[in-house]
């Protein structure tokens, strides 16, 4: 058998027809196309995430060896501490992260809509220049963008130094120091392009004759916006919001530098526990809250848009 099969194999290597015939089998070509990525995703995505879920339900001993006995200790540790529940670090941090992510999303939406609308209606040279100016920060490293705001804010940062220099204020303004405001500005700057591009994609496909028809039929501008433009661009709004909200929720670099240690978002809390203590049980359990809330966000989004609408997927 060995001889004959190696002969066939050599034939296949040599004969073009054989190769074509071999590939022509639907099952084989499906295996060849879908298979490699499947193996990769199972080994390097599904397996690590599943392992993380299981780690959140077991104890890790002093030598960081896993003790395979089911326990809820990691989840209890998230809510450890005295005082009312809402004062526990994890809860406060989670609530704060949701709030910051929500404000950032709304800011991005409000700011991006006019620009996206203009871009969708304009073409030519202006369009190219503007899109270049928007895309360039988008392609620039996230770390660089966060850092550029690190220079702007702070008691002696560029904003305060400029205000002082021109005598507009006598003391550095607290609102331009590091803190929640700085974090929201930094996150808005970082994720704004996602919102813009999502909105642009859906506004670009918008049939403007509908807008004109609505106006012709006597609808006011607000009515047209509410009844025609918004419903038609809803997929863009939802996908843009998701792609701003989710990374803002788990942000680490921006709050790390723009919070000056006074603000603790959930990404920092988890990272600190792992980075300095290698508390993998705690970190995994805390991560589950983020993962679950993201799953819920997407599930809600899919009630209104199909997966195909998400940024042209």
């Amino acid at each position: 058998m060995g001889d004959s099969s190696s002969a066939t194999f050599r034939d296949r290597l040599l004969s073009r027809e054989e190769v074509i015939a071999w590939f022509d089998s639907r099952r084989r070509s499906l295996g060849i196309t879908a298979g490699p990525a499947l193996v990769w995703l199972v080994l390097l995505l599904a397996a690590p995430l599943t392992f993380m879920v299981s780690v959140s339900f077991v104890n890790v001993n002093e030598s960081y060896q896993i003790v395979w006995q089911p326990t809820l200790a990691n989840y209890e540790a998230l809510f450890a501490g005295g005082g009312p529940l809402f004062q526990r670090a994890f809860v406060q941090s989670l609530v704060l992260s949701y709030a910051i992510a929500a404000v950032t999303t709304i800011l991005c939406l409000v700011l991006a809509f006019p620009l996206a609308y203009l871009l969708a209606r304009k073409g030519g040279r202006t369009f190219k220049v503007v899109i270049f100016l928007v895309l360039l920060p988008f392609f620039t490293m996230y770390l660089v963008r966060a850092y550029s705001w690190y220079l702007m804010f702070g008691p002696s940062g560029v904003i305060n130094a400029t205000l002082l220099k021109f005598g507009i204020v006598n003391e550095p303004l607290a609102m331009f120091s590091y803190g929640v405001t700085a974090i929201i500005v930094g996150l808005t700057h970082a994720y704004f392009p996602y919102m813009l591009l999502s909105l642009y994609a859906s506004l670009d496909g918008l049939d403007y004759s509908l807008v004109e028809a609505s106006r012709d039929l006597g609808a006011s501008r607000t009515e047209t916006l509410r009844d025609v433009i918004l419903p038609l661009t809803l997929p863009g709004i939802i996908s843009g919001s998701l792609f701003v909200f989710v990374p803002s929720l788990g942000a680490f670099v921006t709050p790390r530098f723009l919070g000056q240690g006074k603000v603790l978002m959930i990404g920092q809390l988890i990272k600190d526990r792992i980075g300095s203590l290698y508390a993998v049980g705690y970190g995994s359990a805390a991560s589950m809250f983020i993962v679950v809330s993201i799953v819920i966000a997407f599930a809600v989004a899919f009630r209104y848009v199909s997966i195909e609408d998400l940024g042209g997927i």
Partner: peptide, 12 residues
């Protein structure tokens, strides 16, 4: 989120 993916890969 990167924090979560990074940690999942690290412990894996």
């Amino acid at each position: 989120p990167g924090v979560i993916f990074g940690i999942a890969m690290l412990i894996y």
